[in-house]
């Protein structure tokens, strides 16, 4: 799976939880879930669960702690896929 595939899957996952839809038009690895997309923090836990389902991985609480941007999520996904 390429970097682009992963980022595009992340975008699909976060779209229903995104309150600031403009944030989706400039979606890249620097996009911050809380500030740029205004996803509320309870929904950010839902994002983590959806990422686990989509990529068939388990994200431990320590990894979840730092999942603030698309790039953070991508890095965690790649690490878990290679574990």
């Amino acid at each position: 799976m390429t970097n682009r595939d992963i980022i595009s899957k992340i975008k699909t996952i976060v779209t229903p939880y995104t309150q600031r839809k403009e944030g989706l038009s400039e979606f890249d690895e620097s996009t911050n879930f809380l500030n740029d997309l205004e996803i509320n923090s309870a929904n950010l836990v839902d994002v983590v669960l959806d990422v686990e389902d989509e990529f068939d991985i388990e994200i431990d609480n320590e990894s979840m702690e730092g999942m603030m941007t698309v790039g953070d999520a991508r890095d965690i996904i790649i690490k878990k896929l290679n574990d």
Binding site: L34, S41, L44, V45, N61, M64, E65, G66, M67, M68
Partner: peptide
Amino acid sequence: KETAYKAHQRLFQIPARLDPV
């Protein structure tokens, strides 16, 4: 938890994290 998180974040000037547990 969210309320305490905001207080703790302000007190120690911690960048945003998702660590409710």
